[in-house]
């Protein structure tokens, strides 16, 4: 019991209730990652048995990626963004070994087994710098794009509108065409290595989310597009749709009451005699992942 005391914060029902399945998610933390608790909650709330695991326990082989179906790189400030966001953690993964194999080889195997990878904010920055997205032509670990300083030169916390790409193969975002989430980053400006890469990620529909106006039309206008991203790109996947990264935080909108205008919406709904939503807009994204795992991997 004492071992899991601080996990009570995740909600007792997810830990002592009966787990209908064994869809397992690993949520990495350590070195300044700081959205690990809510990412774990988001996943367990969606049905996963989700575990926070220190990145060094993976490197040491104490926890094995192969025992999980989904790998999450949460948001935060790994290594304080000291060498550029996500860069130092990407370095660590690139240069680490797990037993006799490289960390990269383990990741490759994980992806090849059609398992899921999600990187959010700092996690997305890491995926991009590691070359796990967009990984065009299956070239994992070749950096094809980057995320760098916002045009404003500032870290900003603000809620934005995202338009989801219907045609995207992304398994996380099936059916999600409109979503409101917060961005909280200083380095979210997406830049592809060259125009050809941009063309390809567009034509292959691996642009998953773009910043939009309140009517969900894509816009490059600041602050609706908060960082000056190329083509207002906010989220990307690989060609399989199973490796996915995004700058905005779906794990920060798990409750209806996280929305910045929920008191206004609630007031209208009450007066119209309508029901108040039971969850936030970020939840379906994690549920999609769980449904995929349940139907394909279990």
């Amino acid at each position: 019991m004492k071992r899991f005391q601080n996990l009570k914060i995740l909600g007792r029902k997810h830990w002592t209730g009966d787990l209908v399945t064994k869809g397992k998610a690993i949520v990495l933390y350590g070195y300044g990652i700081n959205c690990d608790y809510e990412t774990q909650f988001a996943l367990s709330n969606a049905g996963f048995e989700a575990e926070r695991v220190h990145v060094n326990d993976v490197v040491a082989g104490k926890k094995k990626l192969e025992d999980f179906h989904l790998l999450a790189f949460p948001g935060g400030f790994s290594y304080g963004d000291d060498l550029g966001s996500g860069k130092a953690m990407a370095n660590k993964i690139q240069t680490s070994r797990i037993g006799s194999d490289t960390f990269e080889a383990h990741l490759k195997k994980f992806i090849a087994e059609e398992k899921l990878v999600i990187g959010i904010c700092n996690g997305f920055q890491m995926l991009v710098k590691l070359g796990l997205v967009p990984a065009l032509e299956g070239k994992y670990f070749e950096q094809q794009s980057t995320l760098t300083f916002n045009e404003s030169g500032r870290f900003e916390d603000r809620w934005i509108y995202l338009k989801g790409n219907k045609e995207s193969p992304c398994v996380f975002t099936k059916g999600i065409e409109k979503i409101e989430l917060p961005v909280r980053h200083g380095e979210g400006k997406f830049i592809p290595a060259n125009p050809k890469i941009l063309e390809e990620i567009k034509s292959k529909n691996i642009v998953v989310f773009q910043y939009a106006d309140p009517d969900f039309n894509v816009t490059e206008e600041y602050p609706l597009c908060p960082n000056g991203s190329t083509d207002s790109i906010a989220g990307l996947c690989d060609e399989t749709g199973r490796v996915f990264g995004m700058m905005p935080h779906p794990e920060a909108h798990l409750f209806f009451e996280n929305h910045p205008r929920w008191t206004r919406k609630k007031e209208c709904l009450l007066r119209e005699g309508k029901e108040i939503p039971k969850e936030g807009q970020g939840s379906p994204l994690f549920r999609n992942a769980f449904n995929y795992v349940k139907s394909k991997l279990l």
Partner: peptide, 23 residues
């Protein structure tokens, strides 16, 4: 100042420092 401070991390935010129709 407020915009440059993260007030959402931990998914606990209910009433934010900036609120209203236009946040």
């Amino acid at each position: 100042v407020v915009r440059q401070y993260d007030h959402e991390v931990q998914c606990s935010s209910i009433v934010k420092p900036l609120t209203g129709a236009m946040n």
